[in-house]
Design a protein around this nucleic acid. Structure first.
Length: 438
RNA sequence: GACCCCUUCGUCUAGCGGUUAGGACACAUCCCUUUCACGGAUGCGACACGAGUUCGAUUCUCGUAGGGGUCGCCA
């Protein structure tokens, strides 16, 4: 039988990173096995559901590249995929429970499920068998006085009706799972195979919550992360693919995934390493992808990058290995896109403190003007020549060039900058710097 | 409190009875680099503890401690 798994979030906030990781592992299991990945919206809590939260789920999953085969926007043979639209199904199942003599009512009308109070073993793909002794907990409420149903009930009914074969979910559900199995048994249905994955912890060691940095998937987009990098890092927290290195694509993850390799212990989230993973993926980008990735960030910073894709790519490549996140691009390349860039205070101070600066800048202008070829190699030679003539080290000239061309103390390689800018603009910038000192 | 899961460098982890306990991030030093990075080299740094089982335990069993989770008419 083909594997059917699902991700069943409730739309009460943004898409949580822990939830996204749960979706990820279910998705990997489905894609690896050629099974079906279903998205089901558990919107039974009317008071807390919002449209925005629903969209955050769709957008977050899509951004990460986690696509669903059945569910909202997709349809499927087991719908509706919103619990709020499945009341009739729940009523029918509730009746079954009543007929089996497994429910009773409280004075206010709430209905409770009568536990079997037998020992229950959960066969778990990740943790192995987990045994629970006969419970002493009070029977579980499954239906509210207003006729709406509780999470546990809907969850089980939907898993039966939607034919789920496996359920991968967070370890925080282990303590609920025996209740679910009790319900499956009461319905005479076969429970899916469970796999409880370890939790994502914040740096201080407790369950990731709303307040924690990186808790919302949207925050990665906002911070300039690449979706494939977040996907990669999330995999790493709970699973180690048998692979050299730690950087991989989602395609590789699918090929290598094996649920039995999933870890047993909780993992702390480390934004520094997540950023490092992003840097690794950034370096893999080709020119077109790099421009597409950086462009919104340049524009957001007030830079007009124009439409010369090849030129934009050249500017970005000049700093590709210096940057970890897209949000860092503007400060590294802004001077490539305007002649009216500002000079850092530190640059002005250094220029003014250098009594020889005007003379050397003039010499550089003359020397570079005469350069036959505008390439890194010949520019290097030209600078050396000027240095010799002026009786200084080439090292004294490079900072002057850097300051004049970019207004910054650090940036791309000086020769690369000159080549990207072209002779005309580079010389004009030297002139502008000289004028500033005059 | 009860129940459940977990326990290797600061963090993420490899290891599946015999290893100088390996790697990655971070950190430190050096090399490369006429900036900053990248890259390279080196260093720092861990099997929670106690009993067993065994010729031999990081690895298997039990206990203790510690961490996490769950005990809703939330999901």
């Amino acid at each position: 039988m083909s594997i059917r798994v699902r991700f069943a979030p409730s739309p009460t906030g943004y898409l949580h990173v822990g939830g996204a990781r749960t979706a990820l592992f279910n998705w990997l299991l489905a894609r690896k096995s050629g099974g079906t990945f279903i998205l089901r919206i558990e919107d039974t809590d009317e008071a807390r559901n919002t449209e925005a939260a629903m969209n955050a789920i769709f957008e977050g999953l899509s951004w990460l590249g986690i696509d669903w085969d059945e569910g909202p926007q997709k349809g499927g043979d087991y719908g509706p995929y919103f619990q709020s639209q499945r009341q009739g199904i729940y009523d029918a199942y509730f009746k079954k429970l009543e007929e089996a003599g497994r429910v009773y009512f409280e004075e206010n009308g709430a209905a409770r499920f009568k536990f079997s109070r037998e020992a229950i073993t959960i066969p778990d793909m990740v943790c192995g068998d987990i045994r629970f002794a006969p419970t002493e907990e009070p029977d579980m409420t499954v239906r509210r006085p207003d006729g709406s149903y509780i999470f546990h009930f809907c969850n089980v009914v939907d898993d039966i009706e939607m034919g789920m074969t496996h359920v991968i979910r967070g370890e925080d559900h282990i303590s609920n799972t025996w209740k679910h199995i009790d319900l499956f048994n009461a319905f005479g249905a076969k429970a899916p195979v469970y796999g409880h994955i370890p939790l994502l912890l914040n740096p201080s060691g407790s369950k990731m919550s709303k307040r924690d940095e990186g808790a919302s998937i949207d925050s990665y987009l906002q911070a300039g992360f690449l979706p494939q990098a977040v996907f990669n890092y999330l995999c790493l927290l709970g699973w180690t693919p048998k692979l050299e290195g730690e950087t991989f694509s989602s395609q590789q993850a699918v090929e290598l995934f094996d649920i039995s390799d999933v870890h047993h212990s909780n993992a702390r989230f480390d934004m520094t390493k997540c950023t490092w993973v992003n840097q690794q993926h950034l370096r893999l980008l080709d020119d077109a992808a790099l421009v597409a990735y950086a462009r919104p960030w340049l524009e957001k910073a007030g830079i007009n990058p124009g439409n010369d894709e090849a030129y934009i790519a050249r500017t970005l490549n000049s700093v590709k290995e210096k940057v970890s996140l897209a949000s860092e691009f503007p400060s590294w390349v802004h001077f490539f896109f305007t002649e009216d860039f500002a000079f850092e205070d530190e640059v002005m101070t250094k220029l003014k403190a250098n009594a020889q600066a005007p003379k050397l800048l003039a010499a550089l202008q003359t020397g570079l003007q005469a350069t036959s070829e505008w390439t890194e190699a010949s520019l290097g030679e030209a600078v050396t020549k000027v240095a010799t003539t002026e009786g200084v080290k080439a090292g004294a000239l490079m900072p002057l060039l850097r300051f004049s061309l970019s207004g910054q103390t650090r940036g791309p390689d000086v020769k690369v900058m000159m080549v990207v800018l072209g002779q005309e603009r580079a010389l004009a910038r030297l002139g502008r710097a000289a004028a500033l000192l005059a």
